Simulated assay, not measured.
Amino acid sequence: MTTPTPRLLPLASPGCACCAPSAPSAPTPDPAAARSVAPSEAAATYRVTGMTCGHCAASVIAAVRALPLVDDVHIELAAGGVSTVTVTGTASPPVVRHAIEDAGYTVLVS
């Protein structure tokens, strides 16, 4: 019986805008910097397409964290699929959605 090997996501993908040679390299998010969500904080989840690598995730994290009233951002990356972006804080959903779209990705409307 063989154990399936987990598929590792690439840190760079030639198909994404953030990894194109002319694009600046974004820092990779530090998983140790993540903190748990306190019960008093609001959390909103967004379904996002177009993110294909760690650089994509880092660019969305940077764009959303730059917004006022955002406490933290967590991304569950699904390369080539629908990734989940969870934002804690009290920033309004339209503002967060706009920041993600300005970073070059598509937010799916539920």
Rank of each mutant, 00 (worst) to 15 (best):
T3P: 00
P4I: 02
P6E: 06
L8K: 09
L9M: 07
P10V: 05
L11N: 14
L11R: 12
A12W: 06
A12Q: 13
A12G: 05
A12R: 10
S13N: 14
S13M: 06
S13P: 01
C16M: 03
A17D: 07
A17L: 12
C18K: 09
C18G: 03
C19Y: 07
A23G: 00
S25L: 13
P27G: 09
P27H: 05
P29F: 13
D30G: 04
D30L: 00
P31R: 05
A32F: 11
A32I: 04
A32G: 13
A33M: 06
A34G: 08
R35V: 05
S36W: 06
A38N: 07
S40H: 14
A42D: 09
A43K: 10
V48N: 00
T52Y: 13
T52C: 15
C53E: 10
V60I: 14
V60R: 01
A62W: 09
A63V: 10
A63Q: 04
V64W: 03
R65D: 03
R65I: 00
A66V: 08
L67H: 04
L67A: 04
L67V: 05
L67P: 06
P68A: 12
V70W: 11
V70N: 05
D71I: 10
D72S: 02
V73Q: 01
H74P: 08
I75A: 10
E76K: 05
L77Y: 01
L77D: 02
A78D: 14
A78K: 15
A78Y: 08
G81P: 02
G81W: 01
G81S: 14
G81H: 08
V82L: 02
S83G: 06
S83M: 01
T84S: 12
T86Q: 09
V87S: 00
V87A: 01
T88S: 15
T90M: 02
A91Y: 07
A91C: 12
S92A: 14
P93V: 11
P94D: 01
P94E: 00
P94N: 02
P94S: 01
H98E: 15
A99E: 05
A99Y: 00
D102I: 08
A103E: 05
A103F: 10
G104W: 05
G104D: 11
V109N: 12
S110T: 10
